[in-house]
Design a binder for these strands. Structure first.
Length: 262
DNA sequence: ATGTCCACTAGGAGTGGA
């Protein structure tokens, strides 16, 4: 069973690229972030043609999340409680069947922009709300995944330049403490479970040739309960799909994929 | 190099966001 997270940076602009990725990787379940599209515009038939059913929580222009699944899928909830005015950023569904069932949530966490912007304290408050919400949902004995674009760099290993970024957005102690509090509700970073020492990134700025200069950040995670870790076979950051394909532009994020036993 | 890309409004290219 393969589960993935991917910030696609615009579904309308990325659809053909995504279809290529789905055909090549054939994941069972995918959480998308940054649809930048309203729900009534979502191209369900395009994904159904490839065997995926989708649940969506979108909005015009910005944000927006969705879950695709070729296993049975049942929508549970949309939106982080009390945070609706910060955009469409959370969707949760039950995927799979029997012992292989996973409680799967995908998130597009606020960016924060910079430390002087109003969005920065709102970002911290949003993470506090996420921790409260996660406390009510994480059960170590059940398979649950919280994945997405967290817009926080957890440690110095996860940034291309800790000194340059010290104390700046994505890298502050305040943000790191919020992320740690979410993880401490009973989740583990699946990539770090398998690769505790490896420097690997999931996002590279479009500007300045960042990808080729290895100027990236690891801000996209699959977090899982102990029950998920016990089923974990492997995790991969799909860096190849940050590259142009057949002239098509990639997202600025790479997909992250975990393989679990069924 | 703040050097790119996306969506929106608009009916062409500029703006805001990331």
């Amino acid at each position: 069973m393969q589960l993935a997270t991917w910030n696609i940076n615009g579904l309308r602009a990325r659809l053909d690229y995504i279809k290529l990725w789905l055909a090549e990787r054939a994941p069972d379940v995918v959480g998308f972030q940054e649809l930048k599209m309203e729900d009534d515009k979502f191209p369900h038939e395009e994904f159904e043609a490839l065997g995926y059913r989708c649940v969506t929580h979108g909005q015009k222009s910005w944000n927006g999340v969705a879950i695709l699944s070729r296993l049975p899928i049942e929508h549970i909830e949309s939106g982080l409680p009390g945070q609706a005015d910060f955009g469409a950023r959370l969707i949760r569904a039950r995927v799979g069947e029997g012992d292989a069932t996973v409680d799967f949530t995908t998130l597009y966490c606020p960016n924060g922009k910079n430390l002087d912007h109003d969005d920065y304290p709102r970002k911290l408050a949003w993470f506090d709300a996420l921790k409260d919400w996660a406390m009510g949902f994480v059960d170590p004995s059940q398979s649950a995944i919280l994945c997405g674009d967290f817009n926080i760099v957890p440690t110095a290993l996860d940034t291309w330049d800790e000194e340059k970024w010290a104390g700046d957005i994505f890298h502050t102690d305040e943000e790191r403490a919020r992320l740690a509090a979410v993880v401490e509700t009973g989740l583990r970073d699946l990539y770090r479970e398998r690769e505790p020492e490896t420097q690997a990134f999931s996002w590279w700025d479009y500007r300045g040739g960042a990808f080729h200069r290895k100027h990236g950040l690891r801000i996209d995670f699959l977090l899982g309960t102990d029950a998920v870790v016990s089923r974990l076979k492997g995790v991969e950051i799909d860096r190849d799909f940050r590259k142009k394909k057949d002239g098509m532009t990639a997202s600025d994020h790479a997909p992250v994929i975990a393989t679990l036993t069924d």
